[in-house]
Amino acid sequence: MLNIADTLRAWCSEARPFALATVVGVRGSAPLPPGTALAVDADGNATGSISGGCVEGAVYDLCREILASGGALQRARFGYSDSDAFAVGLPCGGELDVLVQRVDPTAEPHLTRALAAVEDGRPTAVAQIVDGPAALVGRTLSLVGYDGAPDGSLVGTGEGKAVTAQARAMMHAGRTGRIEVGGDADTCPERLSALVQVSAPPPRMLIFGAVDFAAALSRAGTFLGHRVTVCDARPVFATPARFPHADEVVVDWPHRYLDRTEVDTRTAVCFLTHDAKFDIPLLRRALNLPVGYVGAMGSRRTHDQRLARLRDVGVSQAQLARLHSPIGLDLGARTPEETAISITAEIIAHAHRGTGLPLSHGTGPIHRAAPVLSAARS
């Protein structure tokens, strides 16, 4: 529904009921991803699209039917028809699973707040139960802001707590998708599936130092869903050809680029060179920003010298405690690729309050509650 947030916000503000058809599953080739929605109000006005046109008429009719009857949820599946390529179906060969439901804004006021947040550009997640017990399917929960409290009809339930934890993690990653929760004593007894729709940019990874380790780390960061920037003051090394997996390659002094770019509490700052004229100005600034992770490469001797220089320029002990140096977890990594795994493993562990220890050495639930994040600077 977040793809049509502007129109739905207007309908909600007018307390206008509408039917909402949401793509909750895709198999094979399909034109639009899960989370894409089409909505129809009582006057027959439609907004959005779920297939680029090939099944819109059938879905529109389902929406009108539910609005007219006040009926319950309906599920519909649309796929390719071998016998008639012009029949209702997807000629691209895929299959869509669509959930159609009536939405009364007065019964779900949190949706109005969530849709307003999307329009205002604030990070937002809306989770909708799409499979599970009949009493839960269709119910929703929303989060506004990385540290926002959950809101909606699922709040206060065991299922709501489990969905909230995973929805917050999805928002932290900037991803929309299906989640599976429940079915065990650690979460909730009922097994269910929810579609989490997220309106948030992907987390950033800022890599300073155009070295071989940066090439491997940019590839690992992209794989994890980060928006990766590689920055170096040396134009001969900072080239897109050397870092094809990075979203952008910047030629600038690291501290100057950090001063002018946007960061937030999910941003990972990774410094991979050993040059004091670069790392001290950069780390001094980075440790004073509300970023999620600051790491610096180097030996333990380099680390001790770096700490002394940072103290000399006024960096406090509390700020120094935020510095992950030497960067990465102790995996015995030697190659650039192994080192990239070591660094990204530490970033993941820090973001989710993990210990970095083997799971076989621990007890209790494997997954922790998602961390509460503070406000970001931009």
Score class of each variant (00 low, 15 high):
A321N: 06
E337T: 10
V196F: 12
G48R: 13
G138T: 09
G156T: 00
H245T: 08
Y257L: 09
A127F: 03
P34G: 11
S316M: 11
H110W: 15
C92M: 03
D6W: 04
V198S: 11
L329E: 11
T112D: 13
E159Q: 12
T140Y: 11
A321T: 09
Q74R: 15
P326E: 00
P371N: 08
P240W: 08
T261D: 06
E337Q: 08
A87M: 03
C231D: 08
A167G: 05
L32M: 12
A15G: 03
E95F: 01
R301E: 15
A210G: 13
L111R: 05
L282S: 09
V269N: 11
T335F: 06
A114Y: 08
V263A: 01
L99I: 00
R16E: 05
V372N: 13
A68N: 08
G221V: 05
R227T: 13
A238N: 03
G292D: 00
G182W: 12
H324D: 14
A215I: 00
L8D: 02
T124N: 07
G182Y: 13
L258M: 09
A333M: 05
H303Q: 10
W253R: 13
G152V: 06
H110G: 04
R234L: 02
A351L: 14
T7G: 05
V294E: 03
P240L: 04
V372A: 12
V230R: 00
V294N: 10
G89Y: 08
I66D: 02
R368M: 02
L62V: 02
L323I: 10
A42K: 01
C63Q: 09
G145C: 13
E248I: 06
A114F: 02
A127N: 02
L323A: 05
S49T: 15
I341M: 14
G71T: 08
G152M: 03
F278H: 11
T344C: 15
V103K: 06
G183A: 10
D304L: 10
A349I: 09
A233V: 01
G182F: 14
L331S: 09
A149Q: 09
A15W: 01
Q305D: 14
P254R: 02
F278L: 14
I366F: 11
A169G: 01
G35R: 02
T239E: 05
V98S: 01
A286P: 05
A135N: 05
I348Y: 07
H367L: 15
R27S: 14
A30H: 01
A30D: 03
D104R: 14
G356L: 01
P189M: 11
R227E: 14
V100Q: 00
D41W: 01
G145Y: 05
T7A: 14
R102P: 02
D186P: 08
G174C: 09
G94R: 04
N288K: 10
R300V: 10
G156N: 06
S342W: 10
T267Q: 13
R334P: 07
R242Y: 02
R285I: 08
A286W: 06
S360G: 07
L373W: 14
S142G: 09
P91W: 08
